[in-house]
Design a protein around this nucleic acid. Structure first.
Lengths: 147, 147
DNA sequence: CTTGAACCTCTAGTTACTAGAGGATGTAGC
DNA sequence: GCTACATCCTCTAGTAACTAGAGGTTCAAG
């Protein structure tokens, strides 16, 4: 008995996003009233909360799709779920390590800027010359540019 | 005197990406040989290295565009550059804090999974019920879902 | 002179949404 | 009952920063 707007308010997921989730098949197509507007129940609400929370934890939608499918068969072993969660954990850890390195280098770069002219700007110099980075830069940064 | 492939090899930026940067105006249109193929020189190489390094540090292309423009006028004050770098530093710091919180929660979630059936899976439970999160979750996660 | 790698342009796909047009429906107040 | 106005509908296109593929041309080695 929830309109899409109410559902949005309750879950914190924006209205167009809910429709988008329906479109890509993450949420089942809901009932409609005589006027053709979507009506939801508490089951949809729980499912949407699940999606939202998983998104907050950085799971990609494809993983969430899989998690939802798995959670629909409660008697199976939860190994598959565990694997997805662990994969995500490893992913986040990797990003964390990289981001930390970025942070350090940015910090160093900004700290060295004495704010004279562009010509002598340390930021521009460091950006232009990879050699001015910290020594173990290559190890961490080399082949993947991610955020 | 560099083909696009050579330039790619020297800078670590993929060939289609170089063409893409040219398309969006980050790199100037290079000379062409009689056959119509792009030929680059060391100036292009330096510019591309600059872009690459800034990307590795997480600067968005629009910021890089601005940094490149600024670096072309060497006698100006470098305040503007400093501002961009500091903004990026703050951004990275913010992401770092969030990612750390994510990591902790994922870790906790995975640790609690005793790997029985889906029905009792802690991962599924936590994802489904926001209340099972750590207490100060809301403070950190509330309004923006980013990676 | 042939063959295969490297180049060219162009379009469309990726992720996870967001924005906007143009129109229908629901609801509150009079 | 009527009039606003919020909310809803569908559809298309745009975002960032590329990546992939089609279909064709040019270059370099043997």
């Amino acid at each position: 008995m929830l309109s899409i707007g109410k559902l949005s308010g309750l879950t914190g997921v924006k209205v167009p996003t809910i429709r988008y989730y329906e479109q890509i098949g993450l949420l089942p197509k809901p009932e409609r009233n005589e006027g053709g507007q979507r009506i939801y129940n508490n089951t949809s609400r729980e499912r949407l909360n699940f999606i939202r929370h998983a998104r907050e934890l950085g799971f990609p939608l494809e993983d969430i799709r899989e998690l939802l499918a798995l959670s629909d068969s409660p008697d199976q072993s939860c190994d598959a779920i565990d694997a997805i969660a662990k994969r995500q954990l490893a992913e986040v850890e990797h990003r964390l390590v990289r981001l930390n390195a970025l942070y350090k280098e940015l910090e160093r770069m900004v700290a060295q800027c004495t704010c004279g002219t562009v010509q002598t700007c340390r930021v521009i110099q460091v950006l232009g010359d990879h050699g001015l980075c910290v020594a173990d830069h290559q190890k961490i940064m080399s082949h993947d540019i991610d955020q």
